[in-house]
Nucleic acid binder design. Sequence first.
DNA 1: GCAAAAGTGTTTGAGGTACACCCATGC
DNA 2: GCATGGGTGTACCTCAAACACTTTTGC
Lengths: 214, 214
Amino acid sequence: MPYTYEHPHPAVTVDVAVFTVSDGRLAVVLIRRAEWPHAGKWAIPGGFVGIDESLKRAAWRELREETGIKAGVLEQLGAFGRPDRDPRERVITVVYISLAAADRLRLEAGSDASDARLFYIDDLPELAFDHSRILEHAIERLRDRIDTEAVARQLMPARFTLTDLQRACEAVSGDTIDKRNFRKKLKTLDLVEPTGGETQSGAHRPAKLYRVKS
Amino acid sequence: MPYTYEHPHPAVTVDVAVFTVSDGRLAVVLIRRAEWPHAGKWAIPGGFVGIDESLKRAAWRELREETGIKAGVLEQLGAFGRPDRDPRERVITVVYISLAAADRLRLEAGSDASDARLFYIDDLPELAFDHSRILEHAIERLRDRIDTEAVARQLMPARFTLTDLQRACEAVSGDTIDKRNFRKKLKTLDLVEPTGGETQSGAHRPAKLYRVKS
DNA sequence: GCAAAAGTGTTTGAGGTACACCCATGC
DNA sequence: GCATGGGTGTACCTCAAACACTTTTGC
């Protein structure tokens, strides 16, 4: 036990809530814990911060190790540190939020997790630690702060239809949006441009494909 | 050196940025550091988190110990943890923001601080650690999130004039506000009520005194 | 009477919301 | 030809911003 201090030190972890839109519903990446405590329960991916590692870098590394995801933008949600949140020792966790396009998620369970998969946020399993509370905060923050541009840039695949984009915005906000109003606003935002392509449609008119500008 | 761990642990501190409006300008409470590192420099009050103490409780305690202030609402700004931000050891700090009415601030320098006083936020001294960066974030957050109700409830004395309240809102937002628009909005907010009293004015019409409702 | 701050409404523009029909395709 | 989703414009309402004069007091 080589690490000694004059005063007691808490452990510090980082956790990352990765949100995506799958099948028109807002979803989050969870891992199944392989070890005590809460073995078998689902949890937000995360782990201990290296002693010479920045918080954000630790978040990126842990997410990659446990799920195979290489995160894009990581936004800090905050620190959660109630004294009894982990039975092993005092643990303070710094939580990040990230967004990922569904087509870029190839989940691979890593060393500390026996499984990694998506859950719809309105159909979550029982979670380890205080991760239910943390996810509530994360979803609230997401709904408060995210805008159409963030959805288009971070949650959509390279090419998408305007209806796809609208569905993603609706999934994130949890509310329905009027189609004409949505497209009117997109025009003023100057955010997307047509690629020229179209969906090979089903039994209906094909939709134009768009990409995010610049 | 009784506290030993299997893996290295960072230290965790809390810091509290207390904002107030003084003389019509936004100001923050700083303490002068008495000891190494950065002895003699000014810093946001704060200190180490007790091993069985919640983050918010630690923030409240440290603020009280170092300045005598009993904080009201404490809102978490976030965690700051760059590996080199403290020369003693790896320190991760969780920063809180609080607001205080100027008339409730009776600053008393505490044990860890040789001095405590207000600084206008547009006239700050050189700060210890990364506290300049932290304060920038805190001010940005304050300006983004605070509304008239928070100003009225947390930054004003028990009785105040509408012009006082407007000046406080202007100081926080850093912008001027139209008097008639401000008062019109106050009516719709249903936030303040007259106390019946008036200022004993100088060489001009006296102003009615108000208090926050309910 | 004059200086100094208090108090008081209307007009305008922007942005958000509500709302209904025709279009292109597969079957 | 019909079912299915794609695509398009107008009217209204709400809210924020601009803007000027009268009132009350001390001197």
